[in-house]
Every structure is written in structure tokens, then in C-alpha cells.
Amino acid sequence: MDTADNTDDAAEADFQPVFENRVRFAETDQQGIVFYGEYFTFQDETVSQFFREIDYSYEQMETDGWQVHVVNTELNYRDAAEFGDVLVNELRVVEMGTASITFEYRVKRNADDQLLADGSVTQVAVDLETEEPVAVPDAFREAVAAYQGGLPE
């Protein structure tokens, strides 16, 4: 398979279930549904778990002298989750630039597979000391490619 085919395959890569959580009472609002801001926490937890899934943790980033900073995040709310619901958080890398990584995220209710929210988060790789943008290391790219069956554009 040539590189162009790999890129196309990765761009169409299926979402991977990465993080599962049960809605806690503290995450709900007065209407008894998950407060919208909590989904950003779920999204962040999913990205952190994704790094562990690909065997490239935050600790490995620090060892390699880099970290990531969130520069953009978006969420679209599709349906409500309630106290006690089990949520399946899914993620995939859809774009990787020289210094940026964009993830698509979605969360579904486990009981009925109902889509509750979807969106994206973009992070920029920065030098651990200077906090200036740096190229995403090849080892990270390789870990994503192995996990997703190729790299996105």
C-alpha cells in the first residue's frame, strides 16, 4: 500500500472507544442532566487515555522534552446524559501538522449507543523548556500510525 492510500485510510479511520465513565451526581445540573462544561473534562480525559492507549504517555512526552497545549476545542451537544449513565468516549487523530495534532471526539451512552456530543480538540507541540512550538516527534507519529493503521494528512 502506498503512502497516499495510508493517509486516506487514516483519515477514514474508525473512532476508537478510549475512555468509559459513569456520570457522577456532581457532574449534573439542576435539571438532572450532565452540565455542558463537564463534556470538556470528558474530552480531556479521553485524550489523556488515548496517549496511554498508544503507549506514549504525558510522562514520555516530558522525557522526550515536549508537551502539548490545547489551542482550540469544540463540542456539539446532541442529547442529554443523566446521573448514572455509562458513557463511552471515542477519539481519533484526524490531522497532524508539523506542530499540531487535531482529534475528533464523540461520546455515546453505552445503554443505547445514542450520540450525546461530538467535536474536536487541537493541540500544539511545544518545547518543555521554552514552550515554543516544535515538530511533533516521529516516535509519537509512529505510535498514532500503529494505533490507527496510518497517519492522517
Score class of each variant (00 low, 15 high):
71 V>E: 01
49 Q>I: 00
31 Q>V: 13
106 R>I: 12
109 R>C: 01
65 G>I: 03
73 T>L: 08
61 M>Q: 05
137 P>S: 04
83 F>E: 11
51 F>W: 14
51 F>C: 10
152 P>S: 11
67 Q>I: 12
68 V>T: 15
65 G>Y: 01
17 P>N: 06
76 N>L: 11
127 D>N: 07
137 P>R: 06
19 F>H: 15
24 R>E: 06
53 E>W: 03
59 E>G: 05
80 A>F: 12
71 V>Q: 06
16 Q>D: 09
124 V>K: 12
61 M>E: 01
140 F>M: 11
52 R>P: 00
76 N>C: 07
75 L>H: 10
88 V>R: 15
145 A>M: 04
127 D>C: 04
123 Q>S: 12
80 A>P: 04
55 D>K: 01
73 T>M: 02
27 E>L: 14
62 E>Y: 05
129 E>S: 11
128 L>I: 05
117 A>Q: 06
33 I>V: 14
38 E>K: 15
107 V>H: 13
110 N>I: 00
81 A>K: 13
93 V>T: 10
24 R>K: 14
36 Y>S: 08
79 D>V: 06
33 I>E: 00
37 G>W: 05
148 Q>T: 04
56 Y>P: 02
92 R>Q: 08
124 V>W: 04
117 A>N: 11
78 R>I: 07
102 T>Y: 02
15 F>P: 10
144 V>E: 03
22 R>M: 04
135 A>Y: 04
23 V>E: 04
60 Q>R: 07
96 M>R: 11
95 E>W: 07
53 E>G: 01
93 V>Q: 10
131 E>K: 12
126 V>L: 04
25 F>G: 13
62 E>A: 08
34 V>W: 09
45 E>M: 15
66 W>E: 00
92 R>D: 10
56 Y>R: 03
78 R>S: 12
31 Q>Y: 13
100 S>R: 04
131 E>G: 02
148 Q>H: 05
87 L>N: 14
91 L>R: 09
63 T>D: 04
48 S>I: 11
45 E>G: 12
141 R>C: 13
118 D>Y: 08
147 Y>L: 08
39 Y>L: 03
43 Q>V: 02
83 F>S: 06
78 R>G: 05
73 T>C: 09
38 E>Q: 15
135 A>V: 10
78 R>C: 09
53 E>D: 09
46 T>R: 07
135 A>P: 08
86 V>R: 11
34 V>Y: 09
65 G>F: 06
42 F>Q: 14
71 V>I: 15
81 A>L: 10
98 T>S: 12
122 T>R: 10
99 A>C: 08
69 H>N: 13
32 G>Q: 03
43 Q>S: 12
35 F>G: 11
108 K>F: 03
53 E>P: 02
72 N>W: 02
64 D>I: 00
67 Q>T: 14
87 L>S: 15
72 N>I: 08
121 V>Q: 07
75 L>A: 15
150 G>I: 02
79 D>W: 13
42 F>W: 15
144 V>H: 09
145 A>W: 01
147 Y>K: 07
106 R>V: 13
113 D>E: 05
125 A>Y: 01
145 A>D: 03
63 T>H: 01
117 A>C: 13
85 D>M: 14
57 S>I: 00
